[in-house]
């Protein structure tokens, strides 16, 4: 059997093993390559940076553990940035497995701000099922869908929520999202109807599609996948898991490209010979 024929029939488990090494080795020996910030991520930063103290921001964390490595670092950085700007942040999730993500991001981001008061500077409303129906309902009345926050306190008893009851009252919305319901639905039902200003952080798979909304300015900033989250960490000045992970992506991408090239050479050489 010729060399290229053997290469083309290689056991896939060898490919898996190579991929495993490409993931583990850079994690143990980081490359630490510098990276720049793209415009769509800078746009998110600029939108938050332009907020006056006390601006009302809605953060809907629409993702779960499955996409944690891509989105979660952004949520932490965005919350940290919002707290630095003294924005009043209302947090929620439309994903049933989203609440622990929110709690974890809040616990990490709050550490820098010991004076932050729940219910005054920020409040977490919890999870609500209903996809776009929840968004449309919040356009009418947040209270009717979220009678209480995640602590079980009625919204009327929360200082932050006293005169806040409709989506259109928010100055900005930040949407870390990894699918449906997420950025697409927020654009379709909250941006187009209530003219919300939205910035989003999406999984890489979703971000490729959401570029259409960024191109039409329906979303004003977009962070795509782990690189987007790493760039936001760089902007906020606190390197986290996304920055560390970006190092690994270097080698991973090179390996996949090598697989494509070698696979194609093997295909064309063996095809020519069999012809």
């Amino acid at each position: 059997m010729g060399f290229w024929l053997r290469v083309s029939k290689i056991d896939r488990r060898i490919l898996f093993l190579l991929m495993g090494f490409a993931i583990v080795l850079p994690l143990l020996h980081p490359l630490g390559l510098p990276f720049s910030v793209e415009k769509s991520v800078q746009d998110i930063y600029d939108q938050i940076e332009a907020l006056p103290p006390g601006a009302r921001v809605l953060l809907s964390a629409d993702y779960d553990a499955a996409s944690m490595p891509e989105i979660h670092p952004f949520t932490i950085s965005a919350l940290r940035h919002l707290f630095r700007k003294k924005a009043h942040v209302v947090i929620m999730t439309l994903w049933y497995a989203g609440p622990p993500m929110v709690q974890d991001a809040l616990d990490i981001a709050k550490k820098e701000f010991p004076d932050l008061k729940e219910g005054v500077d920020y409040d977490y409303l919890g999870f609500k099922e209903g996809k776009q129906i929840v968004m449309l309902g919040m356009g009418q009345s947040i209270r009717s869908l979220f009678p209480t926050d995640a602590r079980g306190i009625a919204l009327d008893d929360i200082p932050l929520m006293h005169d806040l009851d409709k989506l259109e009252q928010f100055d900005l919305m930040v949407n870390p999202s990894s699918g449906s319901p997420g950025t697409r639905e927020w654009v379709q039902y909250a941006q187009s109807r209530y003219h919300m200003k939205i910035v989003a952080a999406n999984t890489a798979v979703q971000a490729a599609d959401m570029i259409a909304y960024y191109g039409s300015r329906q979303i004003l900033g977009l962070a795509g996948g782990m690189p987007g989250a790493a760039q936001y960490e760089k902007l906020t000045g606190v390197a986290g898991t996304a920055t560390a992970g970006l190092d690994v992506l270097n080698i991973g991408h090179l390996l996949i490209i090598a697989f494509v090239i070698v696979g194609n050479i093997a295909y064309f050489v063996t095809r020519k010979r069999s012809a």
């Binding site: 583990v24 996409s67 490729a208 782990m226």
Partner: peptide, 24 residues
């Protein structure tokens, strides 16, 4: 092709996340 590139990046990121949680 752009979507393919982004998909590779996304899937790799998830594997990186699991490796981080195991090894770091």
């Amino acid at each position: 092709g752009g979507s393919f590139g982004f998909t590779v990046m996304g899937r790799l990121s998830l594997a990186v996340g699991r490796a981080q949680s195991l090894l770091v």
